[in-house]
Amino acid sequence: MNYNWNWGIFLEASPDGTGSYLYTLFLGTRWTIAVSLTAWVAALVMGGVVGTLTTLPRRGWAMLGDAYIEFFRNIPLLVQMFLWFFVVPEIVPEVIGTWMKQTPNSSFWTAVVALAFFTSTRVAVQFRAGILSQARGQMMAAQALGMNMTQSYCYVILPMAFRIILPPLTSEFMNILKNSSVAMAVGLMELTAQTRAMQEFSFQVFEAFTVSTIIYIVINMVIVFGMRRLERWLAVPGFSIDRASEADLRGGA
């Protein structure tokens, strides 16, 4: 293989005129982080609501939640991205459709919406598992004290469910970061798109992908670290696996 390694490429000017190739990748990274974070917050809220719905005693709500999960889980993410970008603006009333197409950063918002719906189904399934893993007894205890359904969920069931599902939520958070690269398909110049652009203009494919790989890994490590901190912070003293003390042991050894 004849390949001219050239790590200096990152300091050379990129053809998009914004600065060096390194700066181009930085811009991509910024979009990647922005789209992932925004979609994650939305997915958490939507998934929390839908997951809770599926556990309600009212059949109607539960079925609605199940239908949502099945629908958004079973369509490939890339297809959903295209649907939101190309199809939805055409089938909604024209005023809304035009607004969707003309809104600034429409590919960013499309990516956020598609990622949020897709990921919220996975978050919802986690929430449901977390809620159901608490024996019916907790719900009964809350109700026996006179709490209504909303109070029982807000004060008793959900705070524990959230703690129980934190570890699987960490991997969903990491998934959304990785899945955000699909947004290049609707024209968002996020990290993967910028890496591809750099490769095409500079022909330094290895350097480009080495650096973007490292960036993805570093961001994911930050996520893992942050979520661990959150777990430690929320750990309930004396409740099952006390991850905090476990980590302390490992740290101290």
Binding site: G137, A141, A144, G146, V156, P159, M160, R163, G238, F239
Partner: peptide, 18 residues
């Protein structure tokens, strides 16, 4: 409302762990 003034104690305590 009715339950709020009928106390109940369960076999498995059911304290709120958090």
């Amino acid at each position: 409302k009715l339950r709020s003034h009928v106390g109940m104690v369960f076999q498995n305590f059911e304290l709120f762990p958090h």
